[in-house]
Write a protein that binds this DNA or RNA. Structure first.
Lengths: 335, 335
DNA sequence: TAATATTAAGTAAACGTTTACACCACGAAC
DNA sequence: GTTCGTGGTGTAAACGTTTACTTAATATTA
C-alpha cells in the first residue's frame, strides 16, 4: 500500500529515527541529509500514519462534539464554528448526534474513549451525572457549549440567557409596548427555559409593568409547532396583546405562521421578537427582529478553549459572550 | 491511565491472545476462561484501544464526509442521515467543511488519508480531477452524495434533477398556469443548474407551451439573496407571469420576500414552487409548496453503500432516489 | 595534545492490539 | 500402544511511529 517511514529511510539511506526527526522538525541532522530525506518523501509521496503516531504519542488530534440534533439550524451553526477552529489548529472533529438520548450519548462517550479523542465538546443539553462520570473516567478535557453545569465546575461558552431575554423585553418596552406576552419553551429547562423567563419578568418589573402569570405560555419544546400552537393560547389569555417575546426563532416563526392564519398582520397588529438569530430569521416574511446568540463564535471559542486545555493550559474558566438585538421587520414602534 | 489488554490478561491469568480472542469473539477458549476474562474486563473497566486496533487491522471504522457548508440546512440534513447510518453500523464520521475551497478540500483529503479513514463521502460539489486523484491514491472507496461525476465512474446517491424540475413545472401546468418563469441558480452548475433548467424547458414543451429564454433568470448561486434579486428581474422580463419554479427553497423564500416588498401576494397574485424541501419550507408564510429531495435518506443510503464497500462488497452502482411534490400553500389553482 | 563538548547519526524499545504458529493434553481410531 | 486430530492456550511477530539511549566523528577548549 502506501509508503511508510521505513521506505523513506531506505530510499534516503538513513535510519527511520532521522526521518522522524525531520518530520517533526527536531534537531539532529545536517541540511544535506534533510534535503535527501525531503526528496525521498516527495518521490515516494509519503504521508505519515496518524494512527501509528497516535498510538505512541497518545494524542489523536481529534475532538468529539456531541450535539442533540445535527440537522437543526442551531446545532449546525455551532458545528461550523467548532469545525473552523479545529481545522485551523490541525484538529479534526467527530460528529456525535445524540438525538437527546441518554444511551446514545453514553454510547458516543464510550466510542470517543475507544478512539482516544483528545477532548470533548458537549452542547445544548444538561450534563447528567452519568455523562460527567464517564468523561472523568476518560480523563480528557470538556467544554460546554451553549449550556452550563450547575453541579460541576466545567468551563463553558454561552450567552447570558437571562440578560438576553431581559434585553429583548426591554427593547419592546422602549418601542412603546405595554401589553407584552411571552412564548416560552419548556419551563423546566434550566438553560433555555427558566433564565429567559426570569429575564422577561424582571424587565417588566424594572419598568413598572405589572406581571401576571397568564402573560406566558409554555411549549413542550422550542420548535416551530410549539410556537404555532402557543400564540393562539396567548391571545386567549391576554387582552390587548401588542407584542410577544419568543424563546426561540423557531417559535417566533411558528407564531408568525399562526398570526397569518388568524388574519393578524405582523408587525402592524402584533410585534414579535425572536431569540437566536438563525438563518431563518432573515428569511422570514417579514424578516424577524431577534436577539442574536453568536453561535458560530460560541463554537469557535469553545473549540479553541478545548484545544488549549488539550495542549496543557489548565484551569480555564467559563465565558459569557455578548448577545445583541438585530432589528428587522417584526417589531412596530408604538410611540 | 486506563487499563490495557495486558492488565486484563494478568488479572484473569491468561495470555493477551486469549483476551483478544474473547473480545473479538473468535473461537478458542473454554467458557470458564471466558467468564473469568469478562469479569476481569468488568472489574478493570477495560475498553479496547481503537488506535492500536486500527494500526494492526488497517481499519479505523471511521469515514470522512466532505460538505461545502456544514451549517447550511441542505448539508445538515445530509449529515444527519450519514451520521445515523454510520452510528448504527458502528462507524464514526469526521466532519469536513470544505467551504467550497479547493485547497481546503485537498487539505482534508490528506488529513483523512493520514488518519486512515476507511472511506469518503463527497457531497454537493463536482469532483475535480485533483480530488479524484488524491482519493485514488488513498485507495479507499468513495460515494457521491447529491452530486454525480461525468468524468469518473463512481457510485452516487441523488435525485434525478431533471425529472424533479420537470415534475415541478408540470405540477404548475396542471394547476392551470401558462405563464411560468424560472428562477435558476448558477447556470454553469452541472448538477443543480443545467439539469433543472432542461427539465423546466422540456416540461413546457411537452405541454405545448412555447419557451423563450427570457422566462429564466439566473442567480450566481442558489441562496436567499439570489432569489430575492431574481424575482423582480423575472417580473420585468415576463408579462403576465403567474407562477415560478425556483431551483432551491432558499431562492423560493427569497422570491417570496421580494414579492412581499413588491406588494404581490403569494399565492393569490403569484404562485411559487421550491426545490429541496428544507425545514424552512414548512416554516415560511405561507408554507412553501416544493419538490422534495429526500436528503436524510440520501445521506443514509450513501453511508450504507460506502460502508458496504469498505467491508468488501465491490461494484456498487449509482442510485437515483425518488423525489416528490409536497403541496403546501404557495401554489394557487387557476382552473 | 589530551580532554571534553557538540553534532549527526543509528539502535532498539515502546505504544496496545491482532494473529500466525507452536504447544500440550486428551480422547478417538487403528 | 502408537498415531492422529482437536480444543484450549501461549508466544512472539507485526502494524508504523516516537524517543531514550548509544556511538562515532568532529569541533572546542585548556
Amino acid at each position: 500500500m502506501s509508503a511508510t517511514i521505513k521506505d523513506v529511510a531506505r530510499a534516503a539511506n538513513v535510519s527511520i529515527a532521522t526521518v522522524s526527526r525531520i518530520l517533526n522538525n527536531q534537531p539532529g541532522y545536517s541540511s544535506k541529509t534533510k534535503e535527501r530525506v525531503l526528496k525521498a518523501i516527495e518521490a515516494l509521496d509519503y504521508q505519515p500514519n496518524a494512527i501509528a503516531r497516535g498510538l505512541i504519542s497518545k494524542r489523536t488530534k481529534t475532538i468529539g462534539v456531541l450535539v442533540p440534533d445535527v440537522s437543526s439550524m442551531f446545532s449546525s451553526s455551532l458545528l461550523k464554528g467548532v469545525e473552523d477552529a479545529a481545522y485551523s489548529k490541525g484538529y479534526s472533529v467527530i460528529m456525535c448526534h445524540t438525538a437527546f438520548s441518554g444511551i446514545r450519548t453514553m454510547d458516543y462517550l464510550r466510542l470517543l474513549n475507544e478512539k482516544r479523542a483528545d477532548g470533548i465538546l458537549f452542547t445544548s443539553e444538561v450534563l447528567k451525572e452519568a455523562y460527567y462520570n464517564e468523561i472523568q473516567r476518560m480523563g480528557v478535557p470538556v467544554v460546554l457549549l451553549a449550556t452550563q453545569s450547575m453541579s460541576y465546575s466545567i468551563p463553558y461558552v454561552k450567552v447570558d440567557d437571562r440578560m438576553a431575554a431581559y434585553s429583548a423585553t426591554r427593547y419592546l418596552i422602549r418601542k412603546g409596548h405595554r401589553k407584552i406576552g411571552m412564548i416560552s419553551g419548556n419551563k423546566e429547562d434550566i438553560i433555555a427555559g427558566k433564565p429567559r423567563i426570569y429575564g422577561f419578568i424582571q424587565a417588566l418589573e424594572d419598568h413598572g409593568l405589572p406581571f401576571h402569570k397568564n402573560q406566558i405560555v409554555y411549549g413542550p419544546g422550542f420548535y416551530f409547532e410549539d410556537g404555532k400552537k402557543a400564540l393562539p393560547e396567548l391571545l386567549k389569555q391576554m387582552n390587548g396583546l401588542t407584542a410577544v417575546v419568543s424563546a426561540s426563532d423557531f417559535m417566533a416563526v411558528g407564531a408568525m405562521s399562526a398570526a397569518y392564519e388568524l388574519g393578524l398582520r405582523v408587525p402592524d397588529d402584533l410585534s414579535i421578537i425572536g431569540y437566536d438569530n438563525l438563518d431563518i430569521a432573515k428569511m422570514s416574511v417579514p424578516a424577524l427582529t431577534t436577539v442574536a446568540q453568536p453561535l458560530l463564535k460560541i463554537g469557535c471559542v469553545g473549540a479553541q478553549m478545548l484545544i488549549e486545555m488539550v495542549e496543557g493550559r489548565k484551569e480555564i474558566e467559563g465565558r459569557i459572550l455578548p448577545h445583541r438585538i438585530i432589528e428587522r421587520g417584526t417589531v412596530r414602534s408604538l410611540s
